[in-house]
Computed example of a mutant assay.
Amino acid sequence: MRIEDIVFRIIRYIGYLALSMLALIVVVAFSIWLYYNPFKIKDPEHPDFKPQNFKFRDYSNRDELDQALIHSFPIGLPKTEAEKVIFSNLGVTKSKISEDVRENSFSYYYEDPISGYFWSHNFSIQYDNSDRIVQIFRNGTPLY
């Protein structure tokens, strides 16, 4: 076997390896891009906004999240419908708030599975006696 053939095979092998690495990088980047769903309507003011598609990860700051919470969980929405949307987000936990603090209220905590503690949300919803939303609180501040 000639030295030129050996060099050619090594170069071809390196080329295939580089092409495979590039393909892997493209697949990973595309998967991350799709995870954040760039085609989804996230603006609660948009007429085609669907509250049932609410996801915490769609909002990059607290003001956007507040507006989405207000539009996704309007006053009078039944608790079962609200919790169906809330628990469609992976990683949400629920706890009852002491009756001394706020009657018939539950706290919901979300921690993003990718960024973890650095992008987490804690809010609470107060329900009336017929289990309909009366108020939403974020960090103890009412949103309505």
Rank of each mutant, 00 (worst) to 15 (best):
D128M: 11
L90S: 09
S105P: 05
T80Q: 11
I25L: 14
N139Y: 14
F106M: 11
P47N: 06
N129W: 00
H121A: 14
L17N: 14
N104E: 04
G15F: 06
V26T: 06
A29H: 02
D48A: 13
F118V: 05
E83N: 05
P51Q: 00
R62V: 15
Y127A: 06
D5T: 11
H121R: 13
L19S: 15
P78K: 10
V7E: 14
Q67Y: 03
A29L: 05
F49I: 04
D48I: 04
V27F: 08
E81H: 08
L143I: 01
V134R: 15
Y59T: 07
K96G: 00
D5H: 11
H71I: 00
D43Q: 01
D5M: 10
T93F: 10
E81M: 12
W33K: 06
M21H: 12
L69K: 02
I75S: 01
F8D: 12
E103A: 06
D63K: 12
K40D: 08
F54M: 09
L17P: 07
P142Y: 07
I25H: 07
P142L: 07
I10M: 11
S31I: 03
M1P: 06
F54H: 08
I32H: 03
W119L: 12
L22P: 01
I114H: 11
Y36K: 04
Y13F: 14
V85P: 03
S105D: 05
I114R: 13
F8T: 09
F54K: 09
F56C: 10
Y127C: 08
P74L: 00
R12N: 08
D100H: 13
S105A: 15
L24F: 14
Q126N: 07
F30W: 02
E99S: 15
P44Y: 02
W119M: 13
